[in-house]
Write a protein that binds this DNA or RNA. Sequence first.
RNA 1: GUGGAUGUAGCUCAGGGGUAGAGCGCCUGACUGUGGAUCAGGUGGUCGUGGGUUCAAAUCCCAUCAUCCACCCCA
Length: 437
Amino acid sequence: MEFIKPRIYSGLRDRLPEQMNYRGLVVSKLQALFERYGFEPLETPAMEFYDILTGKYGEEAENLIYRLDYKDGKTLALRYDLTVPLSRVIAMNSELVRPIFKRYQIQQVWRGERPQRGRYREFTQCDIDAIGSKSMLQDAEIIAAIYEMMISFGFHQFEILINNRKILDGMVKYAEVGDKLKEICRSIDKLEKIGQEKVRQELAKSDISDQAIKKIFSIVEIEGHHEAVLSDLEKAIGGIAQEGVNELREIRSYLSELGIDEGYYRFDPALARGLDYYTGPVFEVVIKDASIGSVVGGGRWDTLIGQYTGKHIPAVGTSFGLERLIDSMEKLNLLPQITTKTQVLVVPFNTELIPQSLRFLAQLRSAGVNSEIYGEPKSFRQTFGYANRKGIPLALVIAPDELSNGQLAIRNMRTREQEVCSIDCFIDNIQAILSKI
RNA sequence: GUGGAUGUAGCUCAGGGGUAGAGCGCCUGACUGUGGAUCAGGUGGUCGUGGGUUCAAAUCCCAUCAUCCACCCCA
């Protein structure tokens, strides 16, 4: 018999039970948070028509789209993100926007990149977006949700970086290199990573004059407290980027009303973001010491929906990278210990006592206590070892001596304390102990 | 897509042309009425896959796949 070697495409992975447990935990927490903010669920198909996705992300990103040519002559593609499919949904169902539509979506996306840790060819995005409002209130709410999510997962060493495409546009106009926006963004985005000298070299390589580089740096290197950054920006390029600065200022005031700790966000004029469809505020979360790239990214995308219908519908949203979130939590030891759902292990002292043990087991289960039986009693070492490894908190020992007195032994696996109680009330006893654990 | 490193037991890794190794885990016993310790014994591997060189390949060569790292980009 000829075997086919079991294998899996590079960058894809199976999600085994342990992993699924963590994912389930994180996803349900995210879902609850999204719903607390008024977002409603949506799913879209994994495949879209190829031309629905093209012309939205930018040339480089577009090269990473998995394209599928099917025999019926249709050209399809695996979705690259959840934002573009959403914009297609809105273009087809504009009645959803009355006057705003807030949706969340947790689904896989595919990108043909070379995989690394925290970078997969299939990964899960958890998106929230608010459609139909150009108010900065929506942007602030998105940032607030990001903040709350990071805190509630136990992250402390993180920063939400915020900038505005309108400020970048202004900067480019100011430096008088209007046609080089993308090259400039790509270089300055790396400022923190590779340092200013290398960024200078890169810019020079892109045929940007020394004078222009100087101007760019005078903007990009602005730093300090929130209001100081904004007023410095205003002084430098207020004339051409006033709107961008005003928007950030408005966001800041909303964030403070929403009670967001201002130590966790920062206005960073060097933040660029790669995707073409952003038009206004952009944001990104970087976890310090996790070295895993950005975990959350987003921004305002006011013109995307209009590309399908010509109807201008503004929108803003963000995307959480589920795998990166979990990888970072694992690295920083923030994942909760996932223990078994079993509450009681029924332990027959010997095989003769199995029938009787089964009756106790059935009683436990009908009382709503999650219970299992260790079926082949050999040694207590083995039996208790099993309970211990699995994290089962209680053992109900059915043994001859106690039984002859009409009693059962309940052992607390953590404290190693064991008590006997009468058969009539062992369920009450167990439930009492469980409620205290 | 470009460059580099790695692939040996369930896990972490050593070995470097001539019988496949350690630690941890797991199983068993000391301990037939009580688990995380200790001690003793045991289980476990086509050395990623395919081909080549050789009397002989886990070892050398080529290819391939996978993982990691940097670039690129991003979640």
